[in-house]
Amino acid sequence: MKTRKGKLALALVFFPLFFLIASCSLGTASITTTRKALLIGINTYPTSRDLTYPVADANSMQALLVAQGWDTEILTDTQATKSGIQAAIHDFLGGVPSDGTALIYYSGHGTVSNPIAASYQADHGTLSTFSGSIGDAWLVPYDFDTTNWTGGISASDLSTWFEADLLTKNVIVIADSCFSGGFVPISDSADTIGQEYAVDSGGSVYSSSLAALGSFGDLLAANAAAKGTLSPVVISAAGSRESSYDGTPSQGHGVFTYYLLESATKGDANGDGYVTCTEAYTYAAKAVNRAWNNSIGSSMEFYPHISGGLRDLALFKL
């Protein structure tokens, strides 16, 4: 009897251990589904200040993704009108099957729907002293009407187009533009990184996290309200109240995109051979903060943001 009891005790201890060890051996799978990327880069605008590197940003992103097996389409300058972008989402990304991945990368101007706020930002370089609502964040297509302040692409526009045209829920949106944080839904979370980093950065992420815990009840309510639906993973170069910038000539890209591209080779934090959106974001955000924010004046500081939720998507492969 004693021996049987001993065996039973050993089994009770070692069975769960064996199960746990077996669980660890679950490996990373190869991505076998269709992956399509729409790249948009706008240097020249008929009625706005020209930019230097967005087309180079889109070209480099395209080259990188093509090398990794993505099917891509690129829209630059005059091709990147609002209707042109909508049509490409419908015609090109609409062909991604339900288990595939669709990516939209945008580099160009961004603005806000309140023209007074946009004008204030252009004049003062900051919105921290602007009183009143800044409105929604907009991507600025080539044919944006600066006279009537119409023709921008809002998060709501993108959401409507995705709902209408995309079969897949595996969607990645990356925006390297001013005010692009307005495209980032935080879902179940509170973002401890301020939407205007020069003003809100305050302390460390740790102290910000502790401060966020002051609203623990709100966080529990947000968690309870989260439906777990697979919404797009969104990465923005900047907060909803700040600008992003063209990089230096030696970088040859926008500051954020320069480090996003670099993350494809240096951002694999867990060594599984893939750089997920979160890993790429983490690498690029830290690099922007280290290389740009720590050397530039505080009025030009900015910090990237990423959407909330448990889900992540693979972006690059080593």
Binding site: T28, R35, N270, T278, R311, D312, L313, A314
Partner: peptide, 16 residues
């Protein structure tokens, strides 16, 4: 908790 392994459709669960 670390990130989950990448699935064949590119999805994974974030590290937290």
């Amino acid at each position: 908790l670390g990130q989950s392994p990448i699935q064949s459709d590119g999805n994974s669960y974030r590290a937290w």
